[in-house]
Design a protein around this nucleic acid. Structure first.
Length: 423
RNA sequence: GGAGGGGUGGGUGAGCGGACGAAACCGCCGGUCUUGAAAACCGGUGAGCCUAGUGCUCCGUGGGUUCGAAUCCCACCCCCUCCGCCA
């Protein structure tokens, strides 16, 4: 959520920045609502003052035994009270409308984010190189099926299309990956481990920015009005909702493992095959609560922590800076890590690391008290996958395949799984 | 699911129709004392809003009663204890 004051004080400036994301964005409704609200608030406050002072006078008159004067005052205050009631009703309606508008606005992109459409994302760096195969590399769906690691047909029988079923060593590998990544971030990067609930209430998703705009993406349990977790970001940001943290305890860094559920309405093409885009996948998520002064530094660190996963596994990847039009609603700046899938000849995102600055903190009222004392300030929140396993799984199969159609595991995984080769 | 108890500032917790934004304690900040620190003592210390005022809002949330509500009434949410069910 943006600061309404900023909008009021510099509507053109804010609009210009928002239009880097969405050239059609319009603020006129919002600004006129705010104008109206302020006028009404002024009148309401004046009436409240009258009522308050009058009521105090009633008490005073009674104490002095002036019952007659008190009664007179009471009857004149009835009118004030009635008018106030009506105006307050209109005010709260206006405030509701304003809030709804404000909740729909996306974050302002950071100055370092290039303007432009999705396709113009910037290559920041690459690690390793695409393997050279002297045979046509297979798609992970073929590898997974032939090696008995994945069974999409039976998954469809149980749940429907685009749900995963890991079998045999595939199931073992998936679990080993989750567990190892979790440990890596806890033991080596100093994250606090968390296993959160994977159903959460409306408020939680409102704070993360998932609601109100993207309700269609979520699985909803109507009876309880709870939503299945689409990313642990939504859960972790709510850990400190309505809290005032001490600056000394920042940055707070959490790592969570959760399954993630997304309805993925309206996707298409090659993404529909295999592990690329599923209704359910596993993800290890990294989340920081930090100060405005250091949040961009922390974003670098966060990306580094996610990259470490791929480096340890010896997987070739590249790091991309997203452009303004490709940012998620809550993000001010996002860096993606994309892993190479030779079976498909393209890169896929396995981690998306974002600085949401105070966007979520404002929605969730998450603040910190500065070390030297003084007023609480909003924290900055950062999130990043560290990393999503299904695509990682696919990359491991595709990047390590042999001409014989087997997969030779990288050393780290061979140790964990107790198997050198999937055959 | 049933019965009871409870949600108040950074924390614990008192207040249960009228100078109550709210006692006390803890914490925090400043001072005195001390070579320094601790202790002790003194003082300060909730958050938000713009219209910047002897201004307004906020005591779980939303309604209601009243000239006036943290306080009374209704509904809902959450937490705790006990019982039931259950991996």
């Amino acid at each position: 959520m943006l600061d309404i004051r900023k909008l009021r004080e510099d509507p053109e400036g804010v609009l210009a920045r928002l239009r880097r994301r969405d050239p059609d964005l319009d603020l006129s409704t919002l600004l006129s609502l705010e104008e109206e609200r302020r006028g009404l608030l002024h009148r309401v406050e004046e009436l409240r003052r009258q009522r308050k002072q009058g009521s105090q006078k009633v008490a005073l008159l009674r104490a002095q035994g002036e019952e007659g004067k008190a009664q007179q005052l009471i009857s004149s205050l009835k009118g004030v009270s009635e008018e106030l009631k009506e105006l307050e009703g209109r005010l709260s309606q206006l405030e509701g409308e304003l809030e709804a508008e404000l909740l729909k606005l996306p974050n302002l992109p950071h100055d370092s984010v290039p303007s432009g459409p999705k396709e113009e994302k910037l290559l920041l760096r690459a690690w390793g190189e695409p393997q050279k195969f002297d045979f046509p590399p297979k798609h992970h769906v073929e590898l997974g099926r032939d090696l008995g690691l994945l069974d999409f047909q039976r998954a469809a029988k149980v749940a429907g299309a685009r749900f995963p079923m890991y079998t045999g060593l595939g199931a073992m590998l998936e679990l080993a990956l989750v567990c190892w990544m979790f440990q890596l971030h806890v033991r080596q990067h100093g994250y606090i481990p968390v296993l959160p609930p994977i159903l959460a209430n409306r408020t939680s998703y409102l704070v993360s920015g998932q609601l109100p705009k993207f309700e269609d993406e979520l699985y909803h349990c109507e009876k309880d009005d709870l939503f299945l977790n689409p990313t642990a970001e939504s859960l972790l940001v709510n850990l400190h909702r309505d809290e005032v943290l001490a600056e000394e305890e920042l940055p707070l860094r959490y790592v969570a493992y959760t399954p993630c559920f997304r309805r993925e309405a309206g996707t298409y093409g090659e993404e529909q095959r295999g592990l690329i885009r599923l209704h359910q996948f596993n993800k290890v998520e990294l989340f920081h609560f930090t100060t405005p002064e250091r949040s961009y530094q922390d974003l670098e660190a966060l990306v580094g922590h996610a990259e470490r996963v791929l480096q340890e596994l010896g997987l070739h990847y590249r790091v991309m800076l997203l452009t303004s039009q490709d940012l998620a609603q809550q993000s001010a700046k996002t860096v993606d890590i994309e892993v190479w899938l030779p079976g498909q000849g393209r890169y896929y995102e396995v981690s998306s690391c974002s600085n949401c600055e105070e966007y979520q903190a404002r929605r969730g009222n998450i603040r910190f008290r500065p070390a030297g004392g003084g007023k609480p300030r909003f924290v900055h929140t950062l999130n990043g996958s560290g990393v999503a396993t299904s695509r990682l799984f696919a990359a491991i199969l595709e990047q390590n395949q042999t001409p014989a159609g087997t997969v030779v595991l990288p050393e780290r995984l061979a140790e964990l799984l107790g198997e050198r080769e999937l055959s």
